[in-house]
């Protein structure tokens, strides 16, 4: 692949080069506000104070003090981080398990109601989850899952699963039937064939679903804010909200540091899976 690109580059004409450069410049220009924003965030979090809001003064770690000292009125940051990871990983595990099974069923089995289910999934996706708030409250109460991270995980996963199933179906649709037939003829059961042949071929889909699930769990705020009452079950989103909304300290240094800390896994995750993401956008998701 690399070699091919090289050869293509060799034959590129000058006008095309100018075109490419122009495109890159435009892209840089468009993303500039975002880049500047993040840059400011990082600088601010390590700086004592900012002159006129954007010139850093003295280098300091003071803003990051929440990592090693207790903040008055807030739970321990590491417990909160742990809670956030539990929610993110839990949502991810449940969603990957169920969407990889459900997507397969939607793609391969022709059962009664299949097309209505698929239409319903699309329709469901259009409704904001917030509209379910009251119903969900009663549901959690009945199940005795109020003020419980497990409740949040179930709730969040169940809201994400339909869409994830749809995405996984697209990936399964791309796996030729013949491969499965070959697996059966080679002496395996349908389940073994799924595990050994089909699943490895939809790995990019699983990766994409997993990342989205993780991030949605990680960034969940509304349900946490509504259904979690004890500080010991706080997650980072709630923590950040607390710091931002707190009138006792309007401490921007602290806010930026906490915000950065909160974003870290997101950035790392995207870094690792960007390859799969590109595959997703190039390959497209076939419905």
């Amino acid at each position: 692949m690399k070699k091919n690109n090289g050869e293509l580059g060799f034959f590129k004409r000058n006008s095309e080069k100018i075109m490419t450069i122009t495109i890159i410049l435009i892209l840089i220009l468009i993303t500039l506000p975002i880049i500047i924003g993040y840059f400011w965030l990082i600088i601010r979090s390590f700086s004592e104070d900012m002159v006129r809001g954007f010139v850093p003064t003295k280098l300091t770690l003071k803003n990051w003090r929440f990592l090693w000292s207790e903040m008055k009125g807030y739970p321990n940051i590491w417990v909160t981080t742990f809670n956030t990871s539990i929610v993110a990983l839990g949502v991810m595990a449940i969603e990957v398990l169920i969407t990889s099974l459900g997507g397969y069923a939607l793609s391969r089995y022709d059962f009664p109601g299949r097309s209505s289910i698929m239409k319903l999934i699309l329709a469901l996706h259009a409704f904001p989850a917030i509209s379910l708030m009251v119903a969900v409250f009663y549901l959690l109460k009945v199940l005795n899952l109020l003020d419980s991270l497990f409740g949040i995980i179930l709730l969040k996963a169940s809201l994400e699963i339909p869409w994830g199933t749809w995405i996984m179906k697209g990936f399964y649709d791309g796996v030729p039937w013949e491969l499965e037939m070959a697996g059966l003829i080679d002496g395996y059961s349908r389940f073994e064939t799924w595990i050994k042949i089909v699943l490895p071929l939809v790995k990019p889909g699983i990766a994409v679903t997993a990342v989205f699930a993780f991030l949605s769990g990680w960034s969940e705020f509304v349900f946490i804010n509504t259904f979690i009452f004890s500080q010991k079950f706080w997650t980072l989103s709630k923590y950040v909200k607390g710091i931002i909304g707190d009138f006792r300290f309007a401490d921007y240094g602290l806010v930026t540091a906490v915000g950065l800390f909160y974003m870290l896994p997101t950035i790392i995750f995207f870094f690792f899976v960007s390859k799969h993401m590109i595959k997703l956008t190039i390959g497209g998701v076939k419905g």
Binding site: E178, L179, M181, A182, G183, L201
Partner: peptide, 8 residues
């Protein structure tokens, strides 16, 4: 198979 169906 016609398209060989080798496991990619």
């Amino acid at each position: 198979f016609q398209n060989y169906a080798l496991y990619p």
